[in-house]
Design a protein around this nucleic acid. Structure first.
Lengths: 219, 219
DNA sequence: GACTGTGAATAAGTTCACAGCT
DNA sequence: AGCTGTGAACTTATTCACAGTC
């Protein structure tokens, strides 16, 4: 079944909590417990799970391990998703380290940059390749996800190259609205915008907080 | 007036487009033009502007410069918002460079780290200070915004320190749900989660795209 | 008693449709 | 003619409320 984007974006949050629970040897978890750990309401969590048919046991809860599996499958993470990153500047380099460091569920297989002075280098063991290799590597490794961390001026062109190479989803850190084949999903993260929007909440503009406490008597 | 969060997060996007338009000497812009440049619908743009009383001229459009001013004011950016960053690891360092590089509307005034080996260093001219200085610097400089890039284990504690220092809005890059005074606004960006959620769209899960083209006959 | 699963109600956000200026 | 401003309609998302199961 097709899940709304808002649901898709909550799934990795559950996944992380489940990982923690598994590490602690917890094998049953209730939606109430998950609510406390994620801040999402328990009904919402149950509805989210229903989207991908992950059902629990009434009066009991969800089997942690099984839920983890279902979740990974729903996100397509059970097949070992591979990704490439293009643009090895400040941010790109940090992201490579970040994604390699915490062994994410997504595997970074290569980084690319058009600047010859950056090519051939390795960031934490990951090779930086010239752009010409993008197509071949994506094809050979069956890469479907791309991380775009190039300067604004190059973003559209590189986005097109990613799509041409066969990339189906892009995490776009450039401050540019990419115009690509709509079959390619683009998720924008503009860090400058994130920071600027915070300014609103630091200006005394936020009124009487209507923030809902995420339920649960345990506190 | 109190704006919904979803609106607040669109404002910096308009701001960036306006900056470009101003740089190009454009002094009138229509909501249709903004729609093309941002991907948001023109009605939505007009409604957003109405939230902070930025009205245009019927049959004409919006005065670019005036709109820019209003927007900056609505976001509280007209007062020179200052920010601090805590946690000068991979990501923290890259973010410092990122925010200092593109002269954002928000000014980073200091970075902090608990690791003595990182203290005293300067990243692109910005001093890295010990945590003990957080309170004094925030108080002295009237800092209201904090960027949190510490490891998961330290996040809650550092978040509390930021709130205690007087920070009113936090950009939280750690994979932890912070439990802080609700008067402090927390915006979470978990890069691992962003990447993992993309996996869904790279698994052939996205059905027949229902993506709406953002209007406009000009192609 | 505890917790799930889900229709119904509500709230939030977006688009439509069009009157009103210039 | 062109573009704004905004109620109304619609769509999407969240919360309520409770029957169902263990």
């Amino acid at each position: 079944m097709r899940m709304p984007e808002v649901v898709v974006r909550r799934l990795p949050v559950y996944l992380r909590v489940l990982q923690d629970l598994l590490a602690d040897g917890v094998d049953i978890v209730s939606s109430g417990e998950l609510s406390q750990r994620t801040g999402f309401s328990s009904e919402q969590i149950r509805k989210d799970f229903a989207y991908f048919r992950a059902f629990g046991t009434r009066g009991v809860g969800y089997r942690t391990r099984a839920l983890n599996q279902r979740l990974r499958r729903a996100l397509g993470l059970d097949r070992g998703v591979r990704a490439v990153l293009v643009g090895v500047g400040n941010l790109g380099t940090a992201l490579v380290r970040h994604f390699l460091g915490r062994r994410s569920q997504v595997f970074l297989v290569a980084a690319f940059d058009s600047d010859p002075s950056r090519q051939g280098l390795a960031i934490d063991g990951l090779r930086v390749l010239p752009m010409e290799q993008l197509g071949p590597v994506v094809a050979r490794e069956g890469v479907k996800v791309g991380v775009l961390t190039v300067p604004a001026g190059a973003a559209q062109k590189v986005g097109e190259a990613l799509v041409a190479a066969g990339i189906e989803a892009i995490l776009n850190f450039s401050p540019v609205k990419l115009r690509l084949d709509p079959r390619c999903h683009v998720q924008n993260i503009d860090l400058t915008i994130e920071l600027e929007s915070l300014s609103y909440y630091a200006s005394g503009a936020r009124g009487p907080g209507r923030r809902r406490a995420p339920e649960g008597r345990g506190g």
